[in-house]
């Protein structure tokens, strides 16, 4: 067989190599667009169909929904406030917990382990109600908002302790050696070298925890905090129209998680492209 080089190939395909490359790219783009289109159609059909079916059933009152939607949506700022405050305190609990879990001092390690074990071994709803209703028996009375935020952050802090521990342990040994060789103390090394790098590593995981927190914040309705879910369930049961109010609340939570997921993806992308390589 004769040498079948690029030029012969192009003649056989009736196109130059660059044209072939462009055709391949165009075909890939077509596939990608088609995939996206089918994705959107599927969502519209499913969600639209469900909406239509509910509306057609005549058992759901649109007027009622319109009347109470503003009141339920009034819980959104409280939901977001509780979630943000709780994640901030949870990070603080988690840093302390992680340092404890990495300590070589037996009592410190024991206390940190006890914290993680105890919190992870009991239900979150029990912890929330415990802080609000059981602690007053010992004279510790917290306002409902403080009790809810404390219980949520204490709980999430225990789970995030392990995330921070893993983040700290992910820092290369060479960083510790470099700091030690410069004469830095262990404490200084942790504060200036290890923790700042560990935080960058765990930021995506904290984002996930925050999104979970938005949904779990509904549990503080049990201590009479008038956030989104409390408003939905109260107005729903009072008017015997729980379907409508819970549907509104569900849409609110769903929208919030979508918004924060997109924000988190953006943040992760920025971290990935950052010139600070950890």
């Amino acid at each position: 067989m004769l040498d079948f080089g690029r030029h012969e190939m192009a003649i056989a395909l009736n196109a130059t190599p660059s044209e072939v490359v462009a055709q391949i790219a165009a075909s890939r783009n077509r596939d990608r667009r088609r995939f996206r289109l089918v994705f959107v159609i599927t969502w519209v059909v499913l969600v639209g169909g469900l909406t239509l079916a509910i509306a057609e059933s005549g058992k759901v009152h649109a007027d009622f929904m319109a009347k109470w939607a503003p009141f339920i949506m009034g819980g959104i700022p409280i939901t977001i406030f509780v979630s943000i405050m709780s994640i901030l305190f949870a990070v603080a609990f988690a840093v302390v917990g992680a340092l404890g879990r990495l300590s070589s001092l037996a009592p410190v390690y024991a206390i940190a382990s006890l914290y993680v074990s105890m919190v992870r071994g009991t239900p979150l709803i029990l912890q929330i109600i415990f802080v609000y209703l059981a602690l007053p028996q010992f004279g510790i009375v917290l306002p409902s908002l403080a009790a809810g935020i404390f219980a949520l952050s204490f709980n999430y802090g225990a789970y995030m302790t392990e995330i921070f521990r893993a983040g700290i342990q992910a820092i290369p040994r060479g960083q510790l050696e470099a700091a030690a060789a410069l004469g830095m103390t262990d404490q200084l090394t942790m504060r200036r070298i290890i923790l700042p790098q560990a935080v960058r590593i765990v930021i995506p995981a904290i984002g996930n925890e925050f999104i979970a927190m938005i949904k779990d914040s509904a549990l503080v309705s049990y201590v009479a905090i008038q956030e989104t879910f409390w408003r939905a369930s109260t107005t729903g049961s009072r008017n015997f129209r729980t379907f409508e109010t819970l549907l509104i609340a569900a849409l609110i939570y769903w929208t919030l998680t979508i918004i924060f997921s997109v924000a988190q993806e953006r943040l992760e992308k920025r971290l990935r492209e950052s010139e600070v390589r950890v």
Binding site: L182, M184, V278
Partner: peptide, 30 residues
């Protein structure tokens, strides 16, 4: 360690500090 400074095979610079901050960290804090 303050009197005997080491240069490592793998450099071990602090990636979250700018070059200048890598250089002033230990003189200032140690």
């Amino acid at each position: 360690r303050r009197g005997a400074q080491m240069v490592f095979q793998e450099f071990n610079l602090f990636p979250h500090f700018r070059v200048i901050d890598n250089l002033i960290e230990a003189p200032i804090r140690v």
